[in-house]
Simulated assay, not measured.
Amino acid sequence: MVNESPEEIYSSLKNVWPENNNWYDYTHRCIIDFVMESLTKRLNKDSIYLNAGSGGSAYNLLGTCHHVDIVENLIKKFPRHAVASIENLPYPDSSFDALICVGSVINYCDVVKSIGELSRVLKPEGVLILKYERSNTGELWFNKDYGKGASLQQYQYLGHTHTLWLYSEQIVDQLLKENSLITLKRKRFHCMSALVNRIFNNEKLSGRFGCIDILFQPISYSIAHNIILLSQKSTINIG
């Protein structure tokens, strides 16, 4: 098994979303819906926001968008872009009214450094949309790594082997708090689909069960593979 770096993998890709895959089609819809619901009324034509780990994705939002990614091929089409990791963002403190960090961006990174940097470049009262993959997932039921603060896992994605850190919801919540980020809302998804994938290891099959996520929200903390949340930076230190 070849151990490729994220830079090597993504420099060869033209699109970060697989086609005709139920799991990722549903994931992408959940992200877009959450971003649009959370930011449409919060941003205006004077807003400045950052798509951190852009992957070439763009949203129909008011304001000026900056794009950051670890490789340039995915973002060079945008007039305002920078090649960097979210662990070390090339922007001054309090640069942005909003940050979008979705996909599995933070799962490739050191979560402590990343959340610290995201908070640093966010203005007081600015908002962060963060999506990540959880170690509380049903995919790890009866596995020693279930619910660990950080668990290193490997996945096949777009013809490559990806090594990701899965983070517990508890540890991410604590880090957000330490960086003065107050969570306003959250949505967990891929609930039953995570359990099905634990058994069959088939994302195309498992992804079909995303449509019934709403039925599993009462127990989503114990089984959901993904979470997306909206946090706001406090004007006082709450850590």
Rank of each mutant, 00 (worst) to 15 (best):
K148Q: 11
K76D: 11
S11I: 01
E169Y: 15
H160N: 11
T40K: 14
N22D: 00
S38A: 09
N3L: 15
K77S: 13
N88A: 15
A224G: 07
H28Y: 12
V127E: 09
S231W: 06
E72M: 01
K177P: 00
S234Y: 06
G239E: 05
D25Q: 09
E169N: 15
E37I: 01
E133K: 13
I238K: 05
K76H: 12
V83W: 07
S234W: 08
V111T: 14
N237L: 07
I75E: 12
V16M: 09
H67C: 02
S54D: 00
E139M: 15
H81W: 06
H225T: 06
G147M: 15
H28K: 15
L176A: 05
D93F: 01
S5C: 08
H28R: 14
R208W: 05
N107C: 14
L176T: 05
Q170V: 10
G63N: 04
V111H: 11
Q154N: 15
V111P: 03
S135G: 08
N21F: 10
I223G: 06
P124N: 07
H190T: 07
L205N: 08
Y26A: 10
H67V: 02
Y221A: 05
E133P: 07
H190W: 05
D46H: 13
F142L: 15
N20E: 12
W17R: 04
I214A: 10
L43D: 01
N44H: 10
E125D: 10
L61V: 10
V71F: 05
